[in-house]
Amino acid sequence: MNFKRIHHIAIICSDYEVSKDFYVNKLRLKPIREVYREEKESYKLDLALEGGYVIELFSFPEALSRPSYPEARGLRHLAFEVNDIEECIIELNLNGIDTEEIRLDPYTEKRFTFFQDPDGLPLELYEK
């Protein structure tokens, strides 16, 4: 194997317009391409961060919920690296997004916190 990096993360949302607003207007990820796939009754929105392709946001009419939270098998959370965690928390809170208390990683001594997307997907801010 000659893996170079993670290419993208795919997220299936329950309400496409709500999630699109969250990721584009509140988290300020840049839309690259949006398509409606009529045969699947599904939207697909490609999003970038710092010029790099990172998230595919999907909608499906009959998507199932996760069986349990937060320790279900699968992706545990998606972490965004930030320069100033407190500045990001203020901006998230001003956009109506609740955040947990700041924690300290005992191994790296870096600060981090969690918040959720509209479907409850755990997202993390990790200070550089």
Rank of each mutant, 00 (worst) to 15 (best):
Y107L: 01
V18H: 09
E127G: 06
I55D: 05
S42G: 07
D119T: 08
E50W: 01
I102K: 09
L27I: 08
V24W: 01
H77I: 09
L45A: 05
D117K: 12
E17H: 06
D84P: 11
T108E: 04
A63H: 15
G74I: 14
S65F: 03
H8N: 09
E100Y: 05
I11D: 06
H77N: 13
Y36P: 01
V82P: 04
L78K: 05
L78S: 13
I32M: 09
L92A: 08
F22S: 09
A63L: 03
D21V: 00
R73W: 07
R37G: 00
P70L: 05
E81M: 12
I32Q: 10
E71M: 10
L64K: 15
L49V: 02
L92Y: 03
D84F: 00
E87P: 00
P61N: 15
A72G: 02
P70H: 09
E39G: 11
D119L: 11
D119R: 05
Q116Y: 12
E71V: 07
D98V: 09
P118Q: 12
K110E: 06
G96V: 14
F22D: 05
S14R: 11
Q116P: 00
D15E: 08
P67I: 14
N2P: 01
L29E: 04
E41F: 03
P67L: 14
L94F: 02
